[in-house]
Structures are given as structure tokens and as C-alpha cells.
Amino acid sequence: MSVHPLHDHPAYTPEFCESGYNNLVRIPDHLDYFSRWASDAALARRGQACQLGLRYGDAPAETLDYFPSRKPGAPLLVFIHGGYWRALDKSCFSWLAPAYVARGAAVAIVGYGLAPATPLEDIARQMLRAHAWLYRHAGELGFDARRIVTSGHSAGGQLTGMLLGARWNEWESGLPAGLISGGLSLSGLFDLEPVAKAPFLANLGLTPDRVRQLSPAYFTPDLPTPLIAAVGGSETPELQRQTSLIAACWPRNVRRTLVVPDCNHLDICDRLADPSEALFGAACELLGL
């Protein structure tokens, strides 16, 4: 009898989980990335047409930044930032937009409330709300509502998985079952059991019941919406296992996995915005560009 992929893993000791998921310890110059991203994001907002702080809900954090395409009826790339649901902000990632706008896409970078003040369940609902709002406003924003591709990094990869499994017509009347046409995860977290056992993430309060509800690997999407799952070749074996795991659990959805060579947990975001990279090509493939 074969072992189910969810049960084929090393022992989840606190030490193992800390080592496998505390990514910034492995990147001594991580503050340099954040500083550069903030600077590049500000430059992108000054040099790119954009609508900032569009409100998709009532909570203070429920806003998104929209970068329109130069062509009407373009596909939309949505990006959900990482930070273990506890850190960073949409404003750090405006620099992702220019390369996709130049290729012919519109881009939306969505914000959400940070944990632990905002529970992960509420963050997932905020992402549902943001995508429903984008779908409803596609006409006035000028993109094709039938071509919404969602991408996310790390915690944003978990949220991307939750969105691909969403039952949209149960969330809000009038929404199509296939509201999202494709997904791209970068270093996604699809089984939260080891995340829950990492001491540095203890304040997330992930009980076994919450792990099951919030782990995309525990459910199967109703539709075969394509997902490309990417991970850096220099990332921890655990993050690489998470990417292999979702491919094993979602064979109908995962078009392929992509290991980005010589790439750590932060480099992978840079590669997403580089037109010479396979990761950029994967996003364009899903966008139909």
C-alpha cells in the first residue's frame, strides 16, 4: 500500500520545523532585499500609471493597487505578498508591475490584514473579497474578467491555493465557478502542519483543526484550474517538499513544478519580474501572453 503524500514526511520536531521554515535566518542580507524592494516600488509607482488604495472592503487593510494595461481587455495578474501572513505590505511590490504591463497585462497587488491580529481565516476571506471585487469591476478597470491569474509568494502561495479551491458562487451570488483562470505559486505553503510546529510562528495559533481548514493539500479543487508551482533551488528541503506535495495532491491542477536554479526564498520574487526568466514566462503562459 502506498503512503499518502501528506503522511510521507520527516518527524516534525520543533527544531526541524524551525530550520525548515525560518527562511530569513538563511539570508543574512534579507534587510537589503526589503530596502531595495521599497525603493524600486516607489520608483515604479512614480513612473507607471496606477490607481492606488482601491478599496475592496471595509477594513483598513482591504485595499489594492491597480496598474492598468495599455490595451483594453488585457488579462489580469494578481499578486499576493508573503511574510508568513505577519509582515510586509502590498506597497513593497509595485516593482512587479512594469514588466507585465509592458508585455500586455494589467496587474493588481492586493493588501490584507496581518496576523495574528487578523486570523488566517479572515485573511483568506479578504482575498476572496478582493478577487470578487476585481471581477465585478473588470469593465471599468479595463481588463478581461475571464482571464484573472492569481500569484502569491510563500504565505501568498497558500492563499493562492485557497483561492483555486474556492466555491465562488457560494461566496457571492453571480460569480462564476471558475473566477480564477490560473494560479502561480512561489515557494507556496500548502500543508501548514510543520508551519504550526515552528516555534518562531507560534503566535499564529494554528491548531490541528485550523491546519486542516487552511492547508490546500487537504482538499481538492472542484475545477481543473491550472497551477504552476515554483520554488527556489537554494531553498530549504522543506519548501521544496511543499511544492512537490501540492503536485502529488493536485495532479489534475498542477500543470508543472518549476525549480528556479540558484534562487533563495527572496530571489524568487525578483525572478518573477525578470522577462528573461522562466518564472516570468510561466506567468505569461498562464496569462495567455
Rank of each mutant, 00 (worst) to 15 (best):
L227T: 01
G183I: 03
G233S: 02
P14Q: 10
P68E: 09
G113Q: 06
G113H: 09
M1I: 12
I180G: 01
A41Y: 01
Q240R: 13
L164M: 06
Q213Y: 01
S173D: 08
E172C: 02
L64E: 01
Q51C: 04
H7F: 11
Y56G: 00
L175S: 00
A202T: 11
C50D: 05
A155E: 09
W171H: 14
A117Q: 14
L77C: 07
T160V: 02
C263H: 14
G104Y: 03
K90R: 15
F200S: 07
L64K: 10
D29H: 13
P28F: 11
A38L: 15
K71M: 13
G82A: 07
R55Y: 01
N203E: 15
L287S: 06
E235C: 05
N253S: 11
S187R: 08
P176M: 08
M127A: 11
N169P: 04
G232Q: 08
P28T: 12
S234L: 11
S234N: 11
L214C: 08
L120A: 10
W37F: 10
I80V: 00
G183Y: 06
A44H: 03
C263G: 12
F190W: 13
W168G: 04
A44T: 02
I268D: 05
V78F: 04
G139Q: 10
L6Y: 13
H131I: 15
D191E: 08
G157V: 00
W168M: 03
L272S: 00
G111H: 03
L134M: 06
D270T: 12
V259W: 04
I246A: 08
L88I: 14
P98D: 08
A196D: 06
I80F: 06
E170R: 15
R167V: 14
A247K: 11
T150G: 08
A177H: 11
G83H: 09
S35G: 11
V231K: 01
I228F: 07
L289W: 14
K71D: 09
Q48C: 15
L186A: 08
S94N: 05
D32V: 15
D262A: 14
T13W: 04
Y218R: 14
P208S: 01
A115C: 15
P237R: 14
L175Y: 00
A229E: 08
K71V: 14
L76D: 00
S69H: 10
D122P: 08
D40L: 13
S154L: 15
E140G: 04
L245G: 06
S19N: 13
R146T: 11
Y218P: 02
Y100R: 08
G232W: 00
F34R: 13
P116I: 12
P72K: 12
Q242P: 01
G157C: 06
L223Y: 08
S181T: 07
A61P: 01
L289D: 07
S276L: 15
L6D: 06
A283L: 07
K71F: 15
D58L: 13
L141A: 10
T160F: 05
K197F: 11
L159S: 06
T13I: 02
G57H: 09
Q158M: 02
R86G: 02
L223G: 09
A41N: 00
A145Q: 10
A278G: 07
A74R: 07
